[in-house]
Amino acid sequence: MKKLLFAVAALVVLALMGWGFYQAIYVAPTEATMGDVQRIFYYHVPNAMLSYLFFVINFVASLFFLVWRRGHPGRAQAADAWALAGAEVGVVYCSVVLITGPLWGRPVWGIWWTWDARLTTTLVLWLIYVSYLLTRRFASGAQMQTLAAVLSVFGAIDMPINYLANRLWRTQHPAPVFGGGPDSGIKDPHMLAAFGWNVLAWAMWGLLVLGIRVYVERRQQAIDTVAALEALAGD
């Protein structure tokens, strides 16, 4: 039953990704000044938006872990699995942002990378969550989960700075397309549709991977608990 559900979900996600690709590459009109390079926008921006979503999942789950870790150990373990999955998927999405950005920057700006506020804070965000994942490798058990949850709070502080970077400072990175002022937003309906489909497709893909990752981590926790109990019984 679970396998069937997973197969159906995977097929839906694949179809959505294909449809999103078709919309972005063939349907959406070519942008006037930048040409075809602009189509990378349909991948870059949805991934950036969704990386926030997964980092927020990580942050909220970490808060729940900190609240529940004394009174409700079972629930706290579930929260920890969500926090781990959120950080992992978030790092993948943030990596896509950091890769697609320079691919667009090279033809449009003439340089791969510049140290403006938006690019720098995005890189910092990525580094912080990579260090979060490293921390989880360097320690073990409930102690590691608490330390990681605390680190997640510090990562979350960087998120608003990153979001506001091209709103507060004059950056080389383009001004926000959405929520940036009265003139922002996509005017062409085909472009908006291509963008919307890609947000949906990548969101579904990310949530599917997140769900699988939580499931695997919960299984791992169950195995670890049994192993720990057996070790205790053996003494």
Partner: peptide
């Protein structure tokens, strides 16, 4: 104080501290 609880205590501190300190360093 956080990394002293981990296995590779000396190694972990710079790995966590540097990314978080970056905005202040800048």
């Amino acid at each position: 104080a956080l990394s002293i609880r981990s296995r590779n205590r000396e190694l972990l501190l710079p790995l966590i501290l540097f990314p978080i300190f970056l905005p202040a360093l800048l």
